[in-house]
Design a protein around this nucleic acid. Structure first.
Lengths: 346, 346
DNA sequence: ATGAAAGCGCTAACAT
DNA sequence: ATGTTAGCGCTTTCAT
């Protein structure tokens, strides 16, 4: 046991040739005679030679691995993005390291530094809520200054000049709202987030635009911007109470548009408790085409953000920067279009 | 831009001292005079010196990173396990690399080799369905033979001698079934998987044991072992049909125990379509305390497998092996107890 | 107190 | 066709 892997040097002494002969043989260099080549390759195979990636990295000054930092991993959207990144990257011969910031600024900085310090050629990141709130991007600037390319996705900021991959949140929200309007709904409840999350902000604007374009005057009582709670469980409880109160106050609505699945699931629970029929009396739609939408009754109509595609695109952008020096200068922003997945709630 | 990080060598020439003096100063060696030390440290700081992890790894023959291979990432249980691993590992100064096998044997082998080839000190893995079916563990044996410690979690096999972290599936299933029996249920529908998945197998046994201990004779018509379909969507459709058929045939049941959330969610949909009241007429419980359970109506009572704890335990086991040579010989299996989280479906 | 040199495993330019 | 050597960035033993 503990058979510590064999090195070029060992093969060389064992075979009575030089290290470079071994190296060249293994890399199938034309410099080496067929005879020797065969001999070396056979020996290497027999002894399960595996080239030491670390040594290679040190030599080449590149690690062929890319780092991904996401705010949360237990999250349908993000894990799908990772899926996309993983698929494309591995197909291009890159490894993927994943780190989680847990929505914390401090942890994000730590993770970023750990990565920048060593093992990665480039970083793909979606910013933590706290970072967005603080608007402190020093750690990102620093690693970019070190010549490490950074790609931002989904949770981005205009304060950083680098490649970005975003969803067209505004037009997605507009489409969703319009979708409800076209079903004859006029009093549409919006469940959104606080404005510092650009995502929530854009979606709210899309909602407002759709109303305006259809000549519907927005009703402030129909716009709920959820407060961040410590846990999403608590957030649910608070939100459910708010919706309940709304109904009890007699504020009427015939549609609901939520900026994510769980808000809509919360609304659905309330409606069912109040015995309001979906989609008969109220139509419902939300962002995030995740697991929940598929397993509620009725199943939820959603706006898909094409998470996997976002992942692939981010990886493409990064690897391009990595392989082609000249691409380092220009910075581009890719916009992924949303699409509506209709299910039973509309 | 592209400020390529500074090296010891550069600092040395810049300051007119030797490389080793710089190295020692930065590592606060007592060998170096206070004066020089200060000077070097100051200079390093000013130029944002960061030690090159790769070089260190090459020297130390350890990378301080651990690899994790999971069958799926878009999965509540696995992402929670990762969360646990990540938390413990980073706290111990380790990085975590994640790879996904996508339930494919081939991909698992590839990922394993990529990892074993270089960047990781040890591996934590949950086996792909295909691997379990094939029962081919050569790749694992090989990396263990290379002296790389491997920890198996959740999807394990008795054919491999290494540390393992498993859930007590059988007693969890027994507890769940007993839970329903104690609510006065006697005709309990079991929704399980094919037997080659040890997880499904154990849970089925737990179910049978609970029945036996309570003097209930198992009814084969009440045991459904779902076939793997290409996608979980398809699996749902098939399963829903099966349950529907059961009811239409007049096979009666007053409880449902499913080995995972989505099976139970499927059952719930059918029951609601048939206008059967939950939990009034039928009580329901399942394994996997995930997102879905929290957002259906009624919310589902579940058996929690303490995913995060499993992650932490796996990481502990691995890091222990990594830091303490002498622990390499013994192999231990940790069993994580399940617990029931009661919600509205019982 | 400081420095020279070897070595971690590999590649590649440059001999031979 | 094969070998020698330098070097990637760092630590550490052994001089000085």
């Amino acid at each position: 046991m503990n058979k510590k892997r064999i090195t070029l040097k060992e093969i060389a002494t064992e075979l009575g040739v030089s290290i470079s002969t071994v190296s060249k043989s293994l890399n199938n260099s034309p410099e080496i005679g067929e005879e020797t080549k065969k001999k070396v390759v056979a020996f290497a195979k027999a002894h399960q030679y595996r080239t030491n990636t670390i040594a290679l990295s040190l030599k080449n000054r590149k690690t062929k691995t890319i780092g991904v930092i996401i705010p949360e991993i237990v999250h349908y959207f993000f894990s799908n993005v990772i899926n996309g990144i993983e698929n494309y990257a591995s197909q291009q011969g890159y490894n993927v390291i994943i780190a989680v910031s847990n929505e914390s600024f401090e942890k994000e900085v730590l993770q970023m530094e750990a990565m920048a310090n060593g093992f990665i050629d480039g970083i793909i990141i979606s910013l933590a809520k706290e970072t967005l709130k603080k608007q402190d991007y020093y750690h990102l600037q620093e690693t970019m200054a070190m010549g490490i390319p950074v790609i931002l996705f989904d949770r981005v900021t205009s304060n950083l000049s680098c490649d970005k991959v975003v969803v067209d949140d505004k037009s997605g929200a507009e489409a969703a709202t319009t979708f409800l309007i076209n079903k004859g709904r006029k009093k549409i409840l919006l469940l959104s987030t606080q404005d510092y999350l650009n995502v929530g902000n854009h979606r709210t604007n899309g909602y407002l635009d759709a109303l305006k374009k259809n000549g519907i005057f927005p009703d402030n009582r129909l716009i709920i911007k959820c407060n961040d709670q410590r846990s999403s469980e608590e957030e649910m409880v608070v939100l459910e109470k708010q919706i309940e109160a709304l109904i009890d106050e007699g504020v009427d609505f015939d549609g609901v548009f939520a900026v994510n699945e769980i808000y809509l699931a919360a609304a659905l629970r309330v409606l069912r408790a109040k015995n309001i029929k979906v989609p008969k009396e109220v139509s419902m739609i939300c962002f995030t085409d995740g697991v929940i939408s598929r397993y509620t009754t009725p199943r939820l109509t959603t706006v898909s953000q094409h998470a996997e595609e976002m992942g692939i695109t981010s990886a493409e952008l990064l690897i391009e920067k990595l392989e082609d020096e000249s691409s380092m200068d220009k910075t581009i922003t890719k916009i992924i279009q949303c699409s509506i997945v209709e299910r039973e709630s509309t």
